[in-house]
Write a protein that binds this DNA or RNA. Structure first.
Lengths: 126, 126
DNA sequence: AAAACTGTACTAATGATATAATACAGTTGC
DNA sequence: GCAACTGTATTATATCATTAGTACAGTTTT
């Protein structure tokens, strides 16, 4: 059963996207594997303090992308192959580093300064 | 007059926030300075292909943060001191590197791998 | 078999975002 | 002074995200 212990819902972006992105990252990093059981819509919504419909929307999104399979009455399951996992990983990394690089470069930082900052924040983040 | 040539409005996030974030980045990087004139609400909205009210919302947000001054009938102006500029810069960099670090770390990458990727994308981005 | 769980569907209400159209008051440029 | 531009305000409308409540069909557990 997937725990969702380290998912904190924040403001500023749709909650259903936060949930689906969280699961994608967990899948890409290998912390969640093929066949793993998801908590029910009701249970997860209670855990996160949100509406069951919002969880449903997140799960439905992942189902449409082939990462989750849902069956009437039974628990929903993670569905992921090695290829899908690697594709996800590449996608997420490019998204993050690409965006961050562009932004920091626009701030006028040099590559070395960016590396130094990366090192600094690497130690600070959990 | 500020040009907004390299601002491309995208989906997925509020347009008025994209505008205000763009201006904040330009201010933080020094490309926009104190006293610079903003285009009128009508002109900028036509340029970006959006509604004047949306531009007004973005400008109002910056006005509330003390970065823009608006006067009835006259052009709105950028208002920024050296301290505000440096605070903005720090804020933007921390936001980006912090978020990216957390995400890439969750992917299971090492610090050295992250640095190598940063270097790779540094050359690739414009 | 029955109770408790599961996924799914639907309606209704609210708030944020965005567009459209219009109006008015003040400034600028000729 | 006057036209053309500015900022500002208002009303109406549409869509999306989210919550709330309810209902039903299927599976699991006992």
């Amino acid at each position: 059963m997937i725990e969702f212990t380290d998912l904190k819902i924040e403001e500023g972006q749709p909650v259903y996207l936060q949930i689906s992105r969280y699961l994608k990252r967990q899948i890409a990093s290998g912390l969640i594997r093929d066949g793993d059981e998801l908590p029910s819509r009701r249970v997860l919504s209670a855990l996160l303090g949100i509406n069951p419909n919002t969880v449903q929307k997140a799960f439905r999104l992942l189902e449409d992308e082939g990462l989750v399979s849902s069956n009437m009455g039974a628990k929903s399951l993670i569905r992921v192959t090695e290829e899908k996992k690697n594709a996800l990983k590449r996608e997420i990394i490019e998204e993050n580093i690409g965006y961050m690089t562009q932004s920091v470069k626009q701030m006028g930082l040099s590559l070395d300064e960016a590396k130094a900052l990366l090192e600094k924040y690497w130690g600070a983040s959990l």
